[in-house]
Design a binder for these strands. Structure first.
Lengths: 223, 223
DNA sequence: CCCGATAATTGGTCAAGCCAATTTTTCGAA
DNA sequence: TTCGAAAAATTGGCTTGACCAATTATCGGG
């Protein structure tokens, strides 16, 4: 499916291609705004909107009175990966990071932590029973564990990887729709994780999380 | 130090605050462009530039003819963390992830991989000898290891965490300037990592990487 | 040849207008 | 009185043109 793209997005793509194919290597200065706008056949405000997008994703640097400079790809911020580019690698990365994170969380188990996870699973079960998709509870489960590890940088990464896995566009492109059966399987895997955490067993928690993410990958990619 | 902020950034911050403090909860519609511009005392093109920034970072959704809608924080993409917010946590996250990554890379060692790392360290040594900062070689060293792990998602995360640690703003704010001495120490730590990889010893490689990142944290935060 | 002043070039912000998509309102028929 | 279709209003999208501010280039005098 192709969404109609905003003009600023089209312009940004064109400029990004000029940089990435070497026409403007890193450090070089792009043509001035007015010239670029004319070359691309768009208005200056529209070009500026595109330049803002490129500034945000780290493709260019804008210096008032001086010009627009191409940045090296190494300096770009966390660009959005193309959807479907590495779904297997995405799930593998989740397995690596959430295994490390849950080991930390398992070393910091408290009764309230266990109760919070249990409440999330109760809510998840209720949603499944009503035929709804407990995507928010799924996210909350993983994020609560990540937060218990005590490192907000890791928690952010867990959240972002979760969102990449579950972005609406990602699901739509792959033609994947979860069913109550797949959600129930996920719930059972979550309960196994909770049991391992309740036992304060880091190795068991890691194994349960790894099994869950392996199964999730299978549900996502192989159906 | 405070860089003068672009107007669109200031506007975006204001709108983001309106959303985050509950004045426009997720799902609600913001005032129309023309009204918002008037309320904030800016022009419509400037407001539109801000709205593009907010659209990119997932704070809002724009629907032509319908309006501007606040999104829930859960849906936001990888927002930039405030600089200095968690430097300790940033380094801890790097330790967790790069330890996992180097274990994978150590299981996939090849002669050309070792040669590539060795060449990077040679280049790093030459830069240090000439009194320059081998920041690119430092990054290349970490990223080459991450890429050898065979997972582009993890490699991207390693690159992004490295860039967060070494963003010009981050260094400037903390008043930190590396010296030839600190770079030389980093080079020696890198050589220890290479030795462990050359021995195909995942545990030694993990320990060397962990020691390097611990020392790097100390150099960054405690001087 | 160098330095300071001026001009030119560059990005930043603004006002106003028109186009296109969506939503709301109105009107007429059943 | 209700419903559906058409028209109007509202919303975002894009453009043209103008002026302000920072940086760079040029020129003239010492």
């Amino acid at each position: 499916m192709t969404l109609p793209k905003r003009l600023y997005q089209q312009i940004a793509d064109q400029v990004r291609q000029l940089i990435q194919n070497g026409q403007y290597p890193a450090g070089s200065r792009l043509p001035p705004e007015r010239e670029l706008a004319q070359t691309l056949g768009v208005s200056r405000p529209s070009l500026r909107e595109a330049l803002i997008a490129l500034e945000i994703d780290g493709t260019i640097e804008i210096r008032m009175g001086s010009g627009i400079y191409a940045l090296s790809p190494a300096k770009t911020s966390n660009g959005q990966r193309s959807l479907g580019e590495s779904p297997t690698e995405l799930m593998q990365a989740r397995a690596v990071i959430e295994s490390a994170v849950i080991a930390k969380a398992a070393a910091a188990v408290t009764d309230s932590f266990i109760e919070a996870l249990s409440a999330i699973l109760d809510s998840m079960r209720a949603e499944i029973a009503e035929g709804r998709k407990p995507i928010d509870q799924d996210r909350q489960f993983h994020l609560t564990i990540a937060e218990q590890a005590g490192n907000s940088v890791l928690a952010d990464i867990v959240a972002n990887l979760f969102d990449e896995r579950h972005s609406p566009m990602s699901d739509h492109m792959r033609g994947r729709f979860e069913t109550p059966e797949t959600w129930f399987a996920a719930l059972q895997e979550h309960e196994a994780i909770l049991t391992a955490l309740d036992m304060r067993d880091p190795l068991a928690a890691q194994a349960a999380m790894h099994a869950h993410l392996t199964a999730s990958r299978r549900r996502w990619l192989e159906n």
